[in-house]
């Protein structure tokens, strides 16, 4: 997961802000390499170190960068696979939220040695959920927040999210069918 997060962050920063910004982040974080491989393992703390460096270079909070990365993973056509895998979670947004608890097991089915955050969803009130995310990387909760926001949009739901604790997101769903959302075909495009 570390490798995936680092590689995604690298692709996001390079794609959005340019190669020079990424080079500056590499310098700022004094990285031993100039890029990350998604399928390789990196030490704990590396991802947060890169995020801190990016925050320094871009002069915006690391939390915001992580959250933007989450949104980017779902909405960018280059990562269409991420959106598709998440959409398999359910027909509607609520189904999707519940499917998040299954996500670690699903991910391990594809990559048995993948370290995945522990996700627990609680329905705490009418149209109100709390999602907790336990993972050694501080940015994981923020990525998840960005992903949930973008997926709500994908399903056509209107949601408000709040980071109520370092590992907890509160999700309010005032309108489950706000728009028609994006189309989802079961058949994989182009395969």
């Amino acid at each position: 997961m570390q490798g995936l997060m680092l590689r995604s962050m690298q692709a996001y920063l390079r794609g959005t802000f340019g190669a020079e910004v990424w080079a500056a982040v590499v310098r700022e974080a004094t990285l031993p390499v100039d890029g990350f491989e998604p399928m390789l393992r990196y030490g704990d703390g590396m991802a947060d170190r890169v995020a801190q460096a990016a925050a320094q270079v871009l002069n915006r909070p690391a939390d915001v960068l992580w959250e933007d990365l989450g949104t980017h993973l779902v909405t960018n056509p280059r990562h269409e696979g991420v959106r598709r895998l998440l959409r398999f979670g359910g027909v509607g947004f609520t189904d999707f939220l519940y499917s998040l608890e299954e996500l670690p097991d699903r991910a391990r089915l594809a990559l048995p040695d993948l370290q995945v955050p522990d996700l627990v969803l609680q329905e705490v009130g009418p149209d109100r959920f709390c999602l907790t995310c336990k993972f050694p990387i501080a940015g994981a909760t923020r990525i998840l927040g960005g992903v949930v926001m973008a997926m709500a949009d994908d399903y056509g739901a209107l949601v408000v999210i709040d980071y109520v604790a370092s590992e907890t997101i509160r999700i309010d769903v005032p309108e489950i069918r706000h728009t028609t959302g994006r189309r989802f075909d079961l058949a994989m495009p182009g395969a």
């Binding site: 998604p38 696979g81 895998l85 699903r106 991910a107 089915l109 594809a110 990559l111 994989m188 395969a191």
Partner: peptide, 20 residues
């Protein structure tokens, strides 16, 4: 759904490995 999910996840992982 699990089978379709797995087929796509497998596809994505293979693509990543090919890239690597």
């Amino acid at each position: 759904m699990e089978l379709l999910y797995l087929a796509e996840a497998n596809h994505a992982v293979t693509a990543e490995l090919r890239g690597l």
